[in-house]
Design a protein around this nucleic acid. Structure first.
Lengths: 245, 245
DNA sequence: CGTCGTCTTGATTAACCTCAAGAGGTGTGG
DNA sequence: CCACACCTCTTGAGGTTAATCAAGACGACG
């Protein structure tokens, strides 16, 4: 159990190092963080909208989704989180949530106290910048989603989501961009791209019959990455934020 | 001229203080920042997509827009910036832009070197957290936009944008939520909410004839705030991020 | 074997887009 | 000072995408 927590923290450190250079002392500080492992069954809410939280959640296993609920009951998913992602690192500086967090599949989380993270940010300026940079990736994806949902048709939206999740799975070391587990249903994809599940189904059918990509049994297989990326107008830049200097 | 730069920096400090408590030393550090004032004519690009930038832009006067360009030439606006807003504070930790920035009206900006801001973040941990928190507001708005565009009809989307800009104008001290300058055209509103200008026109007409809100001559007047907020399912929470503790 | 969640398919409807044309206002040059 | 060009807003008609309504098939699991 403690071993798993340590593995999770290492994954988080690896993710930070993807985008930020950290010295040995700072790396040790991250590795020294304490957290509590928690399991969630599929479809369980992790954080409810409007809650004040005292800890951030690091995804250890499974798929998490951040969502916004409308009055008529419909949901909009605003982010997916993969293992290694800190779902709500931004809550360290904004602990009252406007959103909710759900385990889309069975999931394991590591809860880390805000106080500990703030202490690290105070003590090590490089870590403060690294945390800030990490949440900026989140914002960058969000900005892409706005453009995706606002200005593209159903086909391009779904293609874009598949490209994004593929590349992120590859970066997280849990798959390749052309073959990866995506633990969502067609209904959840619909909630993410602003469509109905029925329409998502039809679009996935055409992508499948055209030999571009297959999404089945919660697995995505991309037969023709270039074609999929072209349909999506996908560019990798928004996921690969360069470090300054 | 120098006086204007000082005024602008004070506005930025006021904005930070809305969400973060800062000691006298830290406040003095912000006031001591140096910047260069630049004027832009309406419709001029300030930052192009893919550029590497070395400074952040503080909005002094006018309206700025961040956008994403599609291959067919259509644009999606992903953020509006009002006086006092630091358009691209996140570029301090991610200096290669995936987006562009345009002056939607004639605008005055104050450019502040990333190096200076990073130096402040390094020296004053409270400022690092304050900067981080400021960009979190941006992400919070972005997340609302995703839900807005993804799950609401044209009427609700436009109502939501009017509510948001009204409240932000009020918070920035440049208007009230029911009467404020919004220096956009119907076409720009369309680019922000993912609709065509023609449809925006029709929706604004109905809102006007129903006595809910009037948008004309780049001014918004809300006759019935409660009604508008109800149409939009607007809640103020996402703009008012609480500070921890 | 039956139930439930998920996927699939068809038919109809509604929201929004596209194309087209004209009106009002403003700035500019003759 | 008028004429013209240009930008923005407005209105109409018809087309398209995606939503809605409805029903069934498939597979996993108790």
């Amino acid at each position: 159990m403690l071993g798993t927590a340590q593995t999770a923290m290492d994954a988080f450190l690896r993710r930070l190092l993807l985008r930020s250079a950290l010295g040995p002392e700072e790396q040790a500080a991250i590795r020294g963080l304490k957290g509590q492992l928690i399991e969630f069954a599929a479809r369980r809410d992790v954080v409810l909208p409007g809650q004040r939280i005292e800890h951030a959640c690091l995804t250890v296993a499974g798929l998490l989704g951040r969502f916004d609920q409308m009055k008529d009951g419909s949901r909009q998913i605003t982010a997916f989180y993969l293992p290694g992602d800190m779902c709500d690192l931004h809550s360290v500086v904004a602990p009252v949530t406007g959103w909710g967090l759900t385990a889309l599949s069975g999931a394991t989380l590591l809860q880390i106290a805000h106080a500990d993270l703030r202490e690290l940010a105070r003590r090590y300026p490089a870590l403060a910048l690294a945390f800030w940079r990490d949440t900026t990736t989140d914002a960058s994806i969000l900005s892409k989603w706005v453009a995706n949902i606002g200005r593209k048709d159903a086909r391009a939206r779904i293609a874009h989501l598949l490209c994004e999740m593929g590349l992120r799975s590859e970066m997280a070391g849990i798959g390749t961009r052309t073959a990866f587990r995506f633990d969502a249903t067609q209904e959840l994809i619909a909630d993410a791209v602003g469509l109905t599940p029925i329409h998502v189904n039809r679009v996935l059918s055409t992508l499948r019959s055209e030999g571009v990509a297959v999404f089945r049994n919660r697995m995505a297989e991309v037969q023709d990455w270039d074609r999929l990326a072209a349909i999506a107008e996908f560019s990798t830049a928004f996921l690969l934020l360069d470090e300054p200097r």
